[in-house]
Simulated scan of single mutants.
Amino acid sequence: MKNILFICVFIAWGISCSAQQKPEMYFTDTSSGNPVAKDPKIVFFKKSYWMYYSIPGKDMSGWHIGIAKSDNLKDWKKAGEINSGAEYEKNGLCAPGALVRNDTIHLFYQTYGNGLKDAICHAYSTDGINFKRNETNPIFSPTGDWTCGRAIDAEVVEFQGKYFLYFATRDSSYKIQKQGVASAPIKTSFNKKDWTQLTNTSVMEPTLDWEKNCVEGASCIKKGKYLYMFYAGAYNNEPQQIGVARSTDGIHWERNGVKPFLENGKEGTWNSAESGHPDVYKDKKGQYWLFYQGNNTKDGKSWYLSNLKLNWKNDDWPIIQKQ
């Protein structure tokens, strides 16, 4: 009987340890004094993978952007930071989106700490670390009675011969977070005058129970005839979880069912408080990855970044590859 009890205790201990086990990619940034890295965005540039992400200032005051490099998408080394450099950024900047065009990285980010006036900005770099601001910044804010005028969480993707800019905004009550879209010509300089808001309404807003009052953090990738959008549903730690939808025109979206694509982790795991703010990425080998943020403290003082490999079911909907 004692042997049976010992075996049961040992098995339970093993399950607990397995639940606490860290994923292969487990990255954070301690420059603020706390382990915090959020909002990952991956690009390949100058023979390396680059990751741009949000980090707070000292004592968690304000936000700016961290930069890390990797050769394998798992092991990352910090390479620099992008700090406030213009008057409109004085309260902070964060939530980077990025793309590579020719020999230049184009960064799309939001101002921070300005409430209704937070907007999308653009900067560019030929070395991945030192960025020049667009002289027409901020380059985009939404208009119409469907929005409060705020724009955050920029994602810019080439689709159907132009660039689509997806952004999160809120309704006039400042309660419901939802997605909008604008576009610019393919030869754009990404200046303010080049962007046209495509709809006078949201293109995606929370409708499912798990999305609660928020759909944000869009990340898009083209595959076949579809543009796929991975997005974060619910505000941070409610828990935030990840959904996926697809579109043939970049405006009208079909969700992949009513459940989250990636749920928060079970109690005791590193991401039990949420799995949120996704970035979908196709590497140089043709493999697809889903990067995302997570934590298990719910207090905003710890955030880690990780990834999962994706497959595609009948070249149709993405699925998470079994480890």
Results as ranks from 00 to 15, higher is better:
298 K>N: 11
225 K>P: 06
208 L>M: 14
251 I>R: 01
13 W>D: 10
183 S>K: 05
17 C>P: 00
140 F>K: 03
322 K>D: 11
175 K>F: 11
297 T>A: 11
210 W>S: 11
176 I>N: 05
118 D>S: 08
166 Y>Q: 08
208 L>G: 04
68 A>Y: 03
284 K>I: 15
11 I>Y: 00
271 N>I: 06
95 A>L: 07
107 L>F: 05
234 A>V: 09
141 S>M: 08
141 S>E: 04
282 K>I: 07
258 V>K: 14
103 D>H: 14
168 A>I: 00
50 W>T: 04
304 Y>S: 08
105 I>R: 01
237 N>R: 09
284 K>C: 13
192 K>I: 07
87 E>G: 11
91 N>I: 02
201 T>Q: 12
78 K>R: 13
297 T>D: 07
295 N>K: 06
132 K>I: 14
33 G>P: 06
103 D>C: 13
308 L>F: 09
199 T>M: 13
229 M>T: 03
312 W>S: 08
115 G>L: 13
27 F>Y: 14
42 I>Q: 00
49 Y>F: 12
172 S>G: 02
173 S>L: 15
292 Y>T: 07
36 V>Q: 02
262 L>Q: 07
141 S>R: 08
156 V>W: 00
236 N>Y: 15
264 N>S: 08
306 S>C: 05
49 Y>C: 05
264 N>Q: 08
187 K>M: 13
1 M>L: 14
28 T>M: 09
304 Y>P: 00
210 W>D: 08
32 S>H: 04
151 A>I: 05
291 F>H: 04
21 Q>K: 15
194 D>P: 03
156 V>D: 02
162 K>F: 01
190 F>N: 04
128 G>E: 03
288 Y>A: 03
233 G>P: 04
235 Y>G: 11
111 T>H: 02
147 T>S: 13
36 V>C: 02
122 H>M: 13
31 S>Q: 10
89 E>L: 06
190 F>S: 06
278 P>H: 05
273 A>I: 01
144 G>S: 04
83 N>Y: 07
278 P>F: 02
73 L>A: 05
256 N>Y: 07
162 K>M: 07
202 S>V: 10
208 L>H: 06
215 V>R: 01
36 V>S: 00
273 A>E: 06
135 E>N: 11
9 V>K: 12
244 V>G: 01
128 G>R: 02
314 N>W: 03
244 V>L: 07
64 H>A: 10
37 A>S: 06
38 K>G: 03
158 E>Q: 13
319 I>A: 12
132 K>Q: 13
96 P>T: 08
13 W>S: 13
236 N>I: 10
286 G>V: 07
277 H>V: 11
270 W>N: 09
13 W>A: 15
158 E>K: 15
94 C>V: 07
218 A>E: 02
305 L>Q: 06
100 V>Q: 05
246 R>F: 04
23 P>K: 10
78 K>V: 08
185 P>K: 13
108 F>S: 05
146 W>V: 14
153 D>P: 06
285 K>G: 07
275 S>W: 01
69 K>D: 03
277 H>A: 13
246 R>N: 04
33 G>S: 09
241 Q>V: 12
265 G>R: 05
165 L>D: 01
156 V>Q: 01
43 V>K: 09
77 K>M: 14
168 A>W: 02
128 G>P: 03
229 M>E: 06
118 D>F: 01
193 K>S: 14
110 Q>M: 12
